[in-house]
Amino acid sequence: MLRFPGHGRPGPDDIVIGPLDLPGHVDEALAVQALAFGLGPDEVAVRRQIVLRHMTLPGARAYGATVRGRLAGFVYGMPNDRAHWWSTVVEPYLRAQGHDDWLDGSFVITELHVHPRHQKHGIGRALITTITDGAAEPRSILSAIDIESPARHLYRSLGYRDLARQVHFPSAPRPYAVMGAPLPLLRGRPAADSR
């Protein structure tokens, strides 16, 4: 477990990063995601089933960040499999850019979200580096909304680069970018980020 002091000394405001029983905390995690990502109740209901299904897949794992015992952020992912729905959607875009080999030997970051009240404190950076540090795969991939955002800045600072842009997922109103990075992720001075 990692601890981030809230005010310079260990105390109740410390941020604790550790393994998360995501199926057991799915509603709490999705409440964080709904606030961070602007999801409505119908979208949350759909994502709840997706998360629960994903966590049954081989190698799937999750980490959470807690403050005062409450979930402030979470990340989950798994070794990528070309048969997974996400891979089947992004594969043609990656192939068109000559990057479809990234679908093999990669750990995919499925979701990373931090409650808005706890953003810009390095929680997203700590979550993603913690989960990827435990990956057996030599690289990581993810998708993010294809706009210049604090999230994309965070990913770039960790070594992720664009592999494909303007990727359209069914029912997603905005296009995404697929990004990839060699593991371990780059380290440096934690910058203020939104995750």
Rank of each mutant, 00 (worst) to 15 (best):
G77F: 06
E91P: 02
G105N: 09
A126E: 13
P190Q: 07
P19K: 08
W85T: 11
A60R: 08
Q33T: 11
P182K: 13
E148A: 14
V167F: 00
D162P: 02
Q97H: 11
S157P: 04
R95T: 06
R156Y: 11
V26H: 02
W86I: 06
P23D: 01
E148W: 09
A144Y: 02
M78F: 09
I131W: 06
H113M: 15
L163S: 01
R117Y: 13
D101Y: 15
S194W: 12
F169A: 06
L127H: 07
A29R: 02
G188C: 09
V16E: 13
F74S: 00
A62L: 09
V75S: 05
Q166L: 10
R152L: 15
A96Y: 01
Y160H: 08
R174F: 13
E43A: 14
Q49R: 15
D133N: 12
I17T: 03
L186H: 13
R3Q: 12
V46H: 05
T110G: 11
P79C: 06
P170Q: 04
A29N: 01
G73A: 05
G59Y: 00
H113E: 15
V90E: 07
L127T: 04
R152Y: 02
D14H: 04
P170T: 05
G188V: 09
G69R: 06
G124E: 11
L52M: 01
S149Q: 10
A172Y: 12
V67W: 09
I15Q: 05
R68W: 08
D133C: 00
T132L: 12
Q119L: 09
L103Q: 04
L103Y: 05
E111W: 03
I128K: 01
Y63P: 04
R70T: 12
G159E: 06
F107L: 10
L183Y: 01
P170R: 04
G40D: 15
N80G: 14
G124I: 10
P58I: 02
I145K: 13
H121M: 15
S140K: 07
S171T: 14
G77C: 05
I131L: 12
M55P: 00
G77V: 04
G98I: 10
P184G: 07
H25Q: 14
T56N: 01
L158E: 07
V75Y: 07
R82Y: 01
L35C: 06
Y76R: 01
L22A: 03
E137V: 04
N80K: 12
S143R: 08
D193S: 14
I123C: 09
D104T: 13
G6S: 03
A29M: 05
D42S: 10
H118N: 10
A181W: 06
L2G: 01
R68G: 15
H153Y: 07
V32E: 05
P116G: 01
Q166N: 13
W86A: 10
A191Y: 09
G18S: 13
G18E: 13
D162Y: 05
Y176G: 05
T88A: 08
R189L: 15
R95P: 00
R187N: 12
R187H: 15
G180V: 03
P41L: 09
R3S: 11
T132V: 07
S149E: 09
